[in-house]
Write a protein that binds this DNA or RNA. Structure first.
Lengths: 166, 166
DNA sequence: GTATGGTTCGTTACAATATAACATCTCAAT
DNA sequence: ATTGAGATGTTATATTGTAACGAACCATAC
């Protein structure tokens, strides 16, 4: 089922989510780690759309499936999924979003729309290149980056400028 | 009193902090807003060093001065100082750091050292330029950015490679 | 088989971070 | 004196995240 009621960039989201879940399962086998039921369910819930999801929302949503779920249940699954690179934490929202490029471990930036709440992951090589130069200038050794941009996405901008016909 | 026991880039920190506080006071007058005792004290506590400071640590530190201080006291002061551009929130640490460029409202990136915990604000024009190009490509209108890089700063790298003489 | 050990999960309790809501105070302008 | 805006006091609570410990599971070695 696609997200037909949402207006962000239309795409076949059931394909999108299935691709992600299938690849994640493959990678777990390759890496010899366990994609347990809980972990898979959390990953599916995060992939339900392209929004960032909060841990306690995940907890509410998973309870019908795992009635014993507690905060630790969720945070453990999130830790696992992050270690495997399947999801990103959105620091400025205290929330989590599915990673759209599971194979290559790129640094990414996140474009977060205030209006539709979609999060778009971009690799932005020129930005990353400029960042590396800046690190060199500063003598800084980078280990981890969080680059989060809040604003209005292309789709919302368009629909804001195109009022409904009726 | 300078921070002689810390090893990050030596500078005259009492000058550094006084400059910041004086300028903040000036700007408040120019803008017709009140730098009240609480707000000034919080700003001073944040400027005590170049580390990011957590709200509840500020609360503990301000209690000797403002015995009635409660969480809301701190968060209100932090809100004010952020609105005025005197401090930044470090999203990935849930903490706050003094802004080192009060006059010009640049977007900045933060280099956060895991070892000495210093936070260096940099303007990195080439990075910001590359970001603007990326936004244009994506059709994204940016309102606010959080660019936070965790790693090891130049000073720590040096001192790590230069073991003590004795 | 059963011991051993690593991983995952259940469970309880709590720590840490942040906000809501409403009362009170202050002080300048009227 | 009165009023109104901004700042603070105060209580309560919401939200986010961890610690700690035991039980269950399961593969491997003895």
């Amino acid at each position: 089922m696609t997200n037909s009621t949402e207006h962000p960039a239309p795409h076949n989201h059931s394909l999108c989510i299935n691709t992600a879940l299938t690849l994640a399962a493959q990678l777990c086998i390759e890496r010899g780690v366990q994609l347990t039921a809980i972990r898979q369910q959390v990953l599916e819930l995060i992939w339900a759309d392209h929004h960032a999801v909060k841990a306690y929302d995940l907890l509410e949503r998973i309870k019908p499936l795992q009635s014993s779920a507690k905060p630790a249940t969720i945070y453990r699954a999130l830790d696992f999924l992050r270690e495997q690179g399947f999801i990103h934490r959105v620091e400025s929202l205290n929330a989590f979003v599915g990673c759209t490029d599971l194979r290559s471990i790129h640094e990414q930036l996140l474009l977060i729309c205030k209006q539709c709440e979609n999060v778009e992951e971009r690799h932005a090589d020129s930005v990353m290149q400029a960042l590396r130069q800046e690190f060199a200038l500063a003598g800084f050794t980078a280990h981890h980056q969080a680059i989060e941009i809040h604003g209005i996405c292309a789709t919302c901008t368009q629909s804001n400028n195109t009022p409904p016909l009726n």
